[in-house]
Structures are given as C-alpha cells and as structure tokens.
Design a protein around this nucleic acid. Structure first.
Lengths: 246, 246
DNA sequence: TCAAAAGTGTTGTTGATACACCCATGT
DNA sequence: ACATGGGTGTATCAACAACACTTTTGA
C-alpha cells in the first residue's frame, strides 16, 4: 500500500501557535468559495490547517506532515489535545457547500483529531506565503469555518494547562531568548501580569534554564542576557510534583 | 435517521475506573474466541469496554451509553483523554481472528476515542455480572487485547494528572466518605505515601469539603467523621491557579 | 483489655507576594 | 542627554515536611 491512499473519515486539524514576542498567533487558511458558473465569490472565511490521514499513517505523522507542508519544519512540538466528532460539526450551510464543491460527501461523518504545535514565528517562512495561509492574533479570531472555533478554544485551553505544568514555553521562542521574552510569553498565553523580580526568582530555581555568556545586540537599551533550555538538565533534575492544588 | 445506524470506523473505549477503598480497579471484558467447527477455545483474553458510535451520536454520548449499559448509572464523570488510531492497532493475530469471526473487515482502519470514568465500586452492580465483565486491579493488568494496554496506560496518566489539579477524587468515592478514605485514594492513584496530619491540613484549606455531623458505624475502631464534596462551594471559591511548576 | 484506625500541634524551611531604583545601550 | 528595557534585594506571610501520642470503638 502506498502512502497516497487517503482515509476519508479520519482527519487531523493542527492548531499551529506562533509567538512573535508580543502576542500569540495562530496559522489560519483563507477558504474562498466561488460560484462554479460565474466565478463570483460566494463566501470567504478562515479554517485551521489540517488534512485527512493516509491509510498507513499515524495521526501524529499526519499532523507532522501538515505542519511540514506549511513550514518546511520537522521535529516541532506537537501535542494531541482532543477528538472532534459532533454530528453537526460539518453541517452549516457554508461548510456543506464547500464539501459539495470539493467533491466530498457532505453527509459523511468525519472525525477530526486536534494537535497543537508551537513555533517561534521568527523561525518560520510560510511555504504558502502570499497565497492563503497567514498568522492571525489568537485574541482577534472570532469565527472560523466548521467547528474550528471550538477546536481552537480547546487547543488554547490545553496549551495553557500544559504551560502551567511542563516546560514547553521554550518551544515558542528561538533557541536563545531573554528572560523578558519568556516572561512576556507566560503573560500573553496565560493572560496574566507577572512581577519581574518574582518571575526571575522562579526561573533561578529551574536549573535547566541555562544562562549563556551572550547578550542581545542592536537594542536601544541595556542588552539582555540570553538563555537557553537544556532538555538534558531537565530530564536529570525533574522531580515528580505531588502538589495537588485542588 | 434512527439511533440504530452504526458507524463502523469510529469507536469509543471506556476505561472505567473503580475504587474499593483499597486499590484502583478497572472494568474489563473477557473475550473468548471459540473454533467455529468444534467449539474449542482458540484464545481468551481481556479488553476494555467500548463500542462503535451511532451515526447521529456524539462521542461523549456513546461513551455514556457504554457505561450505562454496563452499570445502569447515568451522569457519571467521563473524560476524554485521547484518540487511538495507529495503523497496527488491530493487526495482531488474535485481534484479526476476532474481527473476522465477528464479521468485521480486519483490514479497515478504526479510530477509537478513549474516555475514562470514575466510580465508587460499592455503588455499582454490574449488569453483565457473572457473564464476562469484571473488576481487575489496575496494578495487576499486564496484557490486553488490541492496543488496549496502551489506552489503559494513557488513561491512568490522564487520571493522575487530573487528580493533581482538579477536585475529582470524590467521583471515586461514595457521596459520604472519611478523610482516610480520601487520603488512601490519593495514595493509591498517585502511588505515593502521604502524611496524615499534613494531608488533613491541606484538606482544611479546601472549603468545598464539608464536614458532616455524622460518623462511620460498625467499625472496630474509633469511628471517623464523614465528609462530602460541595460542587456549589467549589465553584464559588475556586481560584485560578497560576503556579507554573515547570 | 486489646487491636485498629481516628484525630490532633509545633517547628523549621521553603516559596509567594509586594515593592523601587540604578544600569547599559542606541539614537 | 534621554528613552528604553535590563537587572537586582528585602520583608512578610503562607504552605510544606517531618514527626508521636491520645481517643474511641467492636471484638
């Protein structure tokens, strides 16, 4: 069996988060349906990135493939956060028209498994740039096609939860970053304000955050020290947390 | 469309956890395949409980239905924790034989969405009791059919994580319970030992744990005070936790 | 009267919170 | 020289960890 046989009932949707040091963004596809006769635009809206899986492909690989096709990046943080299969999820008029227009059975039940991934936007050059894929600030996304708004909200919730308990913030930053960038990331994703000194005291306890002998360059203020995350140190020093903060 | 049209590629598997004040148990089904000619047993092993979904049914409802059919209970805690769809998940010889014998296409790709649910075993009278559904201590489950061992481990991990951060322990206990029972629950599920006095100090901070004017009866020692969980108080007093213990 | 689990306080240590000023750089 | 964000310490309070004895019941 070759990789090209597609399964038509199982798909993955990728919520690709990107951080640009100011806000959290998500990669969305501009979907546009034109009248097949006169070419007039019937509607235009936004979807998450996603695709059906191949018959011999795992869900995780399918998600990684979607991500690779958009960014050319591999070994990116990917986390499954939910399965979406409500009977009505593809039943809105625009979605039905879209499915018909793209030759798919609008009646068939399709399950979608959600993965979110984390990127530093500065690392990314979009492969479909200028075509129909763009970064949008998460806070400004109001409506999406299908049930993708539900999926996005669920992804954001999963990301927040993960960020509170696992060291994954670094995945949204370049390899070397400043503590202010890291703090800003936490503030933006969790929607809180943090005290600089207290934040840094907390950081100091995380041995796997390595201070480099290197500083920012070209900034119009005191250049900040750069840090990086050491997975090796993390694995060695991680302690199982038993605080049940219920 | 009636409820009886089944979708043959999407299923739910339920990891039904039960606590008996001593250990954590899981409800498993004894699967037995007999030779169609001579009736000889070909193999016998264990599976999780689960079923395919109906065409007009949500995943969550399907899981609740599986649970209801086994226990007669409704409004039970149910949590989706993952989707399982690896290409090889139904490909082991026993599983292939089983699928063929039950008239299903052993080649077709089936996705299963995992839900775990929490029960106090003393509340349950199994509907299929004596037939093929039984409680097994989680710690003693070594092999399961299909990829169900993977699913069980994933469920346990999700349960532990949830137990650390949300008040769900009560779902594994009868409505009224003692603090020692609650402590034992945490110890068993998280596989840790806790100090009695420190545990009780922690409990004292949880306003939603209500001390009743009622005691255990018929125990051969000082009877313990009974407590119950108040969801109302919990909703009112919950504070968003911002400790990122990363 | 014995066995079994319930219930209860103190101390030392660690982490959380609140808060204000000087420093290094580019323009 | 000025604007900008970098970087630092202290004091108070809350939670965590370690630890041992008395009480109440049924058998």
């Amino acid at each position: 069996m070759t990789k090209t046989v597609m399964n038509n009932t199982i798909s993955v949707d990728c919520v690709i988060f990107g951080f640009d040091f100011e806000k959290l963004n998500v990669l969305l596809v501009d979907r546009e349906l034109k009248d097949e006769n006169n070419g007039e635009e019937l509607f235009s809206d936004l979807t998450l990135t996603g695709n059906h899986i191949f018959e011999n492909e795992s869900l995780e690989n399918a998600a990684a493939r979607v991500l690779f096709d958009l960014t050319g990046l591999e070994n990116i943080y990917l986390k499954q956060f939910g399965a979406f299969c409500d009977p009505g999820r593809l039943k809105r008029p625009n979605d039905q028209a879209w499915l018909r227009a793209s030759g798919r059975d609008p009646e068939s039940r399709i399950i979608s498994v959600g993965y979110y991934s984390l990127l530093a936007t500065e690392n990314v050059t979009l492969k479909w740039k200028g075509r129909n894929v763009k970064w949008y600030p998460v806070s400004e996304v109001k409506d999406l096609a299908f049930d993708h708004m539900v999926i996005l909200k669920s992804a954001l919730q999963a990301l927040r939860r993960e960020l509170l308990h696992e060291p994954i913030g670094f995945e949204l930053l370049p390899e070397k970053f400043t503590l202010s960038q890291l703090q800003k990331l936490y503030e933006v994703v969790l929607d809180v304000e943090l005290d600089k000194r207290n934040f840094r005291k907390k950081i100091a306890r995380m041995k796997y955050l390595i201070a480099l002998d290197e500083k920012q360059k070209g900034v119009a203020h005191k250049p900040a020290r750069l840090y990086m995350f050491s997975r090796e140190v993390y694995e060695k020093t991680r302690k199982e947390v038993l605080d049940f903060n219920i």
